[in-house]
Structures are given as structure tokens and as C-alpha cells.
């Protein structure tokens, strides 16, 4: 469902309504030739509590600007080791849960997940409003690392004005990978950086473990405050996505959603005394 389409719909209903302010009172049909008896006065007089009169008028209200968050997740075979894929699944669920609790008065956070593994990249979760996202099905790790294909999918979305209208806040693109791309990634990556619409997206990246292609991943982020984040284990994946979550939610409510924010992955909490403020 296109965003613009939805808006057109409510606008057209609003316009229709202004043309027809009140539900018309049904006029009794007269057959030609029959004597014209005056209709009883009770039929057309608005009565107190008449259900026909209680139908509410149609108005249209502004909709919040979309704030798209697109996750590019590596689900190649190596992600199944050391609990990485499990951590990624849990972290993504947590992220979406946090997004659903955010105010939607100013920005509507939308989430999409592109996975790359096996033979191809695919939309694991097509871009949708976070608060209407059903339970995220688990990602499973298997096969190769077709990262270039994931870039192409992301680019296709970012350039689609119907899916991401120009009124949307700057999208956030998040890349997580633990390996080397095995397809042609350079072409698609150049395209992503060159596209007028796509280059506006804030790009964040995390290299997981020693096998990650750090040289390649280092070029991905375009956020001045956020260079490539290097993690080593499942807990680091959690920390990274937590920082993404905080940046996005802060954007959606606190400060100007289009502004560059400080992006900080907090140091691990080894202090047992730290307060747990994540209430369900």
C-alpha cells in the first residue's frame, strides 16, 4: 500500500464530504399517476436520537512523516556460529518492540529487513509501519554472502517515490555482516552512493568478528559521528542494534529527525548495580 495513495484516499473522502454536508433525507418515491398525498411530517423531521442523524461527518487529519529504517542483515552460513543469528533475531525483535512504543505524532517509524545469505538477497520483512509489524519470523543462517544484491534491493526501495515519499524523514540504512561479499558488491554500492535519493540515507554499519571484510565495510557508513562499529560476539550485536534503536527513537521524538545525531554504542554494562529500566 502506497503512502501517497492512502492520503489521496482520505483527501478524496474529505472533498466528497464537503460537497455533501448532510446525509440526505430519503424522499418517498412517487409512482407516476398515483395521487400525491403529502408525506407525513414525522418522516422528514429530525427526531432526537434518530440514528440516521448520528453518522459522524468525515474529516481528514495530517499523517505523520515516515521515518524508514532498513536493516541489511547478513544471514550467510557463518552467522549460525557462536549464537550470532540468535542474537540478531532477539535484537531485531527488541528493536521493533521499542519502536512500537514510540509516539507516532511526529514521525512514524517504519522497519524493513533485507537478508542476504544462501543464493540471493530478499525482503525478509517488507518496509512497514513498526507498530503494525506482525511478529518477526526468525532469520536463519545459511549459504553465501550476496551483499551486492542486498544493496540493489535497498537502492530499488530508496528510489521508489511511492514507497518512500519525498516528505519522509531521511531513511536509516543499517548493515551487519560477518564475512566477505561473494557477489559483485562494488557496482551496487557505487550506485547506492551516487543515487540522489539513496545517498541521503544515514548509513550505519557493524562488522561482526574477525572474518568480516572491514576494509569494505569501513566505506559504508556516512555518518560523521559513527564510524564502522567492530563487534566480536552476540552481545555486541545487541549493543549495536540498541544504539541504532536509541538513535532512531531520539530522532522520532526528541530533536529534529533530519539532523545528524550523536551515535554512540554504549560500553558493555558489567556493573551489576546498573538499573534495569526496560519495563515490558
Amino acid at each position: 500500500m502506497g503512502f501517497a495513495k492512502y492520503q489521496e484516499d482520505i483527501v478524496s473522502r474529505f472533498v466528497n464530504d464537503t460537497l455533501m454536508h448532510q446525509p440526505s433525507v430519503p424522499v418517498s418515491r412517487q409512482r407516476p399517476g398515483t395521487a400525491t398525498a403529502p408525506t407525513p411530517p414525522t418522516a422528514s423531521q429530525p427526531q432526537k436520537g434518530n440514528p440516521k442523524m448520528s453518522s459522524l461527518k468525515k474529516f481528514a487529519v495530517p499523517t505523520p512523516r515516515p521515518l524508514p529504517v532498513i536493516i541489511l542483515a547478513d544471514v550467510s552460513g557463518s552467522m549460525s556460529e557462536d549464537g550470532k543469528i540468535e542474537a540478531l533475531n532477539a535484537a531485531l525483535k527488541d528493536m521493533i518492540k521499542t519502536f512500537t512504543k514510540e509516539s507516532r505524532l511526529r514521525a512514524e517509524i517504519q522497519v524493513g529487513v533485507i537478508t542476504f545469505g544462501g543464493e540471493a538477497a530478499q525482503w525478509h520483512l517488507p518496509l512497514a509501519a513498526a507498530h503494525s509489524v506482525p511478529d518477526l519470523t526468525e532469520l536463519t543462517a545459511d549459504g553465501m554472502t550476496p551483499m551486492g544484491a542486498a544493496f540493489s534491493l535497498a537502492l530499488e526501495l530508496l528510489e521508489d517515490k511511492d514507497r518512500i515519499p519525498s516528505r519522509a524523514f531521511r531513511p536509516v540504512l543499517v548493515l551487519l555482516s560477518d564475512g566477505q561479499p561473494n557477489d559483485d558488491w562494488e557496482g551496487p554500492f557505487q550506485a547506492l552512493c551516487a543515487s540522489e535519493r539513496a545517498q541521503k540515507a544515514t548509513r550505519l554499519a557493524m562488522a561482526i568478528g574477525a572474518d568480516a571484510d572491514e576494509d569494505m565495510l569501513r566505506d559504508f557508513p556516512n555518518h560523521i559521528e559513527a564510524p564502522l562499529f567492530k563487534g566480536h560476539n552476540a552481545r555486541d550485536i545487541y549493543r549495536f542494534l540498541k544504539a541504532v534503536t536509541m538513535t532512531v527513537t531520539k530522532r522520532s521524538t526528541d530533536t529534529d529527525p533530519n539532523q545528524e545525531d550523536v551515535f554512540v554504542v554504549l560500553p558493555p554494562d558489567d556493573d551489576d548495580k546498573i538499573l534495569d529500566l526496560d519495563f515490558d
Binding site: H21, Q22, P46, K48, N50, M53, S54, L56, K57
Partner: peptide, 24 residues
């Protein structure tokens, strides 16, 4: 409004602007 239960600013016609009901 006796019909939709909303409240509206008094006008001479007593027509509810939210549902169009004319109050007695």
C-alpha cells in the same frame, strides 16, 4: 449534541458540526 454526544460551540441553529444533528 443529543445524537453523537460530542460538544460544540453554540450557534443559533444548534446544528452539531460533527454529525449534522439539529438539536431541539
Amino acid at each position: 449534541c443529543a445524537s453523537c454526544d460530542s460538544t460544540f460551540f453554540y450557534t443559533k441553529t444548534l446544528e452539531c458540526p460533527f454529525c449534522g444533528h439539529l438539536q431541539n
